[in-house]
Structures are given as C-alpha cells and as structure tokens.
Amino acid sequence: MADSAQPMHWAEARETAWAAGFAARPVAAELPFDQAAGSALAAPLTAASDLPAFPTSAVDGWAVAGPGPWRPGGAVLAGQVPGPITPGRAVKIATGAQVPAGTEGLIRLEHTETGTDGSVTGPAEREWRETGEEARRGEELLPAGTPVTPPVIGLAASAGHVTLPAHPRPAARVVVFGDELLTGGVSRDGRVRDSLGPMVPHLLTAAGAAAGPSLGPVEDTLEAHVAALRSALSEADLVCTTGGTMVGPVDHLHPALAEIGAEYVLNTVAVRPGFPMLLARTEDGRFIAGLPGNPQSAVIAVVTLVAPLLAGLRGLPLPPLGATRLAEDVPGRGAFTHLALVDAAGRRLGHHGSAMLRGLAGAAGFAVIAPNATGSAGEAIGLATVPGVSAGFGGTA
C-alpha cells in the first residue's frame, strides 16, 4: 500500500477527501425527488412548460370585463377551465384559478362593493400572473451543480418535472472493531458500551449517504477484520470502520487494508483530536474511512474526511465552514490544527476529551484553531459543523 510519511494538514485533508469523492462520483441518473434530495443537479434544470402555463389569479375576487358596474354570474375555481367573459360581466374567481379570456381586471374580494341591484363595483387591477411570467418552456431555471434543496424540488415540480438529473446517494456501512465493546446495557467487567455503532450511521445519513445498520463488534483478529471489510464492501460504496487505526497489538485495520488490496488516499491528519484517521480506496473504486475508536475523534474524522467525501460523490462542492466568534481564549495544539468544541455563543465546552461525548452533545461545532496559533476572545473564526447538527444549537459547559 502507498503511505504518506507525514500527517496531512487538516484543510488539505478535507480538500483531498472531497476531490477523491468528486472524481469517483457515479454516473448521474434521473432520480425521483426523494432520492435526488441532498445531491446536486447533474444537468441544468429547465422548464418543461411555461410557468405559469396559463394566466393565474393572484387574489380571491372578481374577474371583470368592460366598464362597471358589473353583473355577477358564475365562478371559476382552481383546476377549472373557464369560458370567456363579455363586457359588463363579473365572474367570481379564486386565487390560483385560470383567468378567463376577455378579463380586463380583477377586483379583490375585500375591495368589492355590492349594489342594491346585485351589481359589483370596485378597483379593477391586473392582479394575475401572466403566462410564462416566471419562465418560458425550455428556459434554464438553475445551472448544473446546484444543490437539490426542498425549494429546488418545489420549483422542479411546478415546472413540470417528476425526476431530477442527480447523483444517487452512496450506500454506506459502518464496521465496528473491538472485543471490548458491548452493544447493550452498561459498561462492566472491563468492557465499554459501543457509542459509535448507533451514532455514526445517522451522521452518514445526514451527510448524504444511504446508511445501513452497523456491523460488529468485530473480533480482534486479522481474519475477522478482513472478512468484515469484504462483507461490508460487497454492498456499500463507503465503509466506515471504528477503531484499529493505530498500530497496536490488536489494531488490524492497516494489515487488513493491505490484505484486500486497498490504497491509502491519505493516512493520518495533523489535527487534534482525531489524528489517526485514514481514507483508503479499493481497486474497484470503493472507499474505506478509518475512524479512530475514541468517540469524539471519530466524529472529527467524519467531519474532516467523510462529509467532504460524500459531498464529492454527490457532485456537491466542498462543505463550507461556518463561523463563530470566540467568547474566550482557546489554546492551540502546536503544529496541529485544533478542533475545539464550542457552543452557539462561542464558549468552549467542558467534557471535551477525545473519549467523551457529553460536550459534543451540546455543541454547535468545532472552532478551527490553525496550526501554530491560538484563538483569542472576540476573534471571528471558522466553525466545523457536525452533519445533522445545526450550527445555531449549543448547550452550556
């Protein structure tokens, strides 16, 4: 396996993981809206018809023709095709309904006055959307590369589409390594409860993958590691492993990667916590992300490598950093980037050790302290957010 002699800088690692995913993004397809959501448009979105396709009332009121007062007669609701109206007549009309031919103005219902003879009067205005006012058939609405958000789906539907050209969600699985892990109950007898198996699939889903249930815990032998990787890779585009990223007596990930013929995209990142993370690729183009076993370090690996990789695989740009303003000084970690847990007010959180999740559960994200630097109170600084967690959320220390 190819290897790197030095840990990769944190910012470079994010970009490298994203570029690897973007280069390997699958062929785009016409996907139903629910499958395209969270991807990027693989081709421009164009209008399949004029938008609107016919003149559409913007108000509830009366459609009138000729000079008033007008004699009421009939009504047109949304979904109906009205006949024309003649001068001197008024037709009640609902918002969204097709405007009858011959209409010269619309009177808002709240502005309408009714005479003793039943006639209606009021200010008649052109309060309707003209055919093609928003877009003409064939017009480009959005360029390729636009993220498929709920409003984009709404626009596509209104423009006549039932699918969108997009890159499908990568299938992902989590493989949990470690004889010491329990899948139920409380930690006991030298064994600890697994937190990553239940958590990481939800992080992957939030980052744009189709994540299945976790596999494991896997026995601490090379043979078991190789078998688990091959099983997961048979059904996934991305496999995230937890633990075993170092070179201790029961850390079998590196030899297992060699056994299956995977090549490193990167191996270790100059970040604290989370240094011993890795990204590898198999000969058939599937990815393996090695997450450290400490829970917070594993989440940092997801933020650093997995979320950018998944964005690339779906044709999206590198996820941008958010921003925060530090409420207090935050130390650096020498030549390494320091990712420091902070809340929404920029306060550093307690319980921020790499093996802890209590601080993370109340965090807005990680303040990014650059190598060979410190963070100062009042300083505006980058914020690395966790998939599925709003940057506006934050607890207290």
Rank of each mutant, 00 (worst) to 15 (best):
L326H: 11
A58H: 10
P273W: 10
P292T: 03
P150W: 08
S4R: 14
T304K: 00
V200C: 08
L278A: 06
A301Y: 05
I369Y: 00
L357K: 01
P217I: 01
L109E: 15
D60F: 06
G322L: 10
A75Q: 11
A156L: 01
G315W: 03
V186D: 14
G274C: 07
F22A: 15
P255A: 11
A29G: 11
A97P: 02
A11M: 12
P150I: 04
R314T: 09
A207L: 07
P168L: 07
L215E: 12
P276T: 03
V330C: 12
D237P: 15
W18K: 00
S39E: 09
L233A: 11
R272S: 12
A157N: 02
P143A: 15
P276Y: 02
V330D: 10
E12I: 03
G392Q: 08
G96P: 01
T324V: 15
T103Y: 08
Q35T: 14
S57I: 07
G346A: 10
G244R: 00
A156N: 01
V91I: 13
D117Y: 02
G382S: 15
A58F: 14
G105D: 06
N267R: 12
H202E: 15
L77C: 13
V174A: 04
A206R: 08
A301V: 05
V175C: 09
D220T: 00
R286Q: 10
E30Q: 15
P213V: 13
H161V: 05
T131Y: 13
I369H: 00
T16I: 01
A75L: 05
L141S: 06
A40L: 05
S187W: 00
A258M: 07
M356H: 11
E283F: 11
L321M: 13
G375H: 05
R191Y: 02
V81W: 14
A24F: 07
R173F: 13
Q35R: 15
G395R: 04
A209C: 05
